Simulated scan of single mutants.
Amino acid sequence: MQKLLQAVRWLCMGLAIIVFAGQLAMVLMRYLLGVGFVELQDAVSYSFAALVALSVAVTFDRDRHVRVDVFRQTWSESVNQRIDRAGDLLFALPVFGLMLWAAYPLVKSSWLILEGSQETGGLPGLFVVKTCLVILPALILLIVLKRLVGAVRRSVS
Rank of each mutant, 00 (worst) to 15 (best):
G22I: 01
L40F: 05
Q41A: 11
M99W: 00
H65S: 12
K130A: 02
I140E: 01
V8M: 05
V8Y: 01
V38C: 03
T120L: 14
D63Q: 14
D63R: 14
L139C: 13
M13V: 11
Y46E: 01
V107M: 07
R153Q: 13
S45V: 09
R82P: 05
Y104D: 04
L123T: 05
R62M: 14
E119A: 15
Y46K: 01
M1L: 11
M1E: 10
V68E: 10
L145I: 11
V52N: 02
W75C: 07
Q23I: 05
R64L: 15
E77N: 13
H65C: 09
L106E: 05
Y104L: 15
M26Q: 11
R147N: 04
L139A: 10
S117D: 06
G22L: 02
V19T: 02
F60G: 00
F96T: 07
L126A: 12
G122H: 04
D42E: 04
L5S: 11
S45Q: 11
V44E: 07
T131V: 03
G22F: 00
Q41I: 01
P137Y: 07
R82V: 07
G121T: 06
V107R: 02
L90F: 15
A49M: 04
M99T: 12
T131I: 05
F91S: 12
T59K: 06
M29V: 05
L54V: 02
L33R: 09
W10R: 06
I18V: 15
M13E: 07
Q41R: 11
D63A: 13
K130L: 13
T131S: 14
S155A: 15
K130T: 02
L15G: 00
V27G: 07
V152C: 05
V144H: 00
G14P: 03
Y104R: 13
A53H: 03
A7K: 08
G36F: 06
S47A: 12
W111G: 08
V156M: 09
W101G: 12
D63W: 00
V68G: 08
V52E: 02
V149P: 00
L89T: 14
A43G: 05
A49T: 05
D61Q: 13
A57N: 08
V79L: 15
S55G: 03
C12M: 03
D84N: 11
Q41S: 12
K3T: 14
R153D: 09
F20S: 14
D63H: 12
Q41E: 11
C12Q: 01
M13Y: 11
V70N: 13
L123Q: 07
P124I: 08
L11P: 00
K146H: 13
G150K: 04
E77Y: 10
D69I: 08
L24Q: 03
A43P: 02
K3V: 12
L4A: 15
Q2A: 15
I17S: 12
A151V: 04
Q41K: 08
L28K: 02
A92L: 14
L33A: 14
D84P: 06
E119L: 14
V128Y: 14
L141T: 10
V134K: 00
F48C: 04
L114I: 10
R147M: 02
S78T: 13
D88Y: 07
S55T: 10
R85P: 00
Y46P: 01
M29F: 10
R82L: 13
S110M: 03
L93C: 08
M26R: 01
L114W: 14
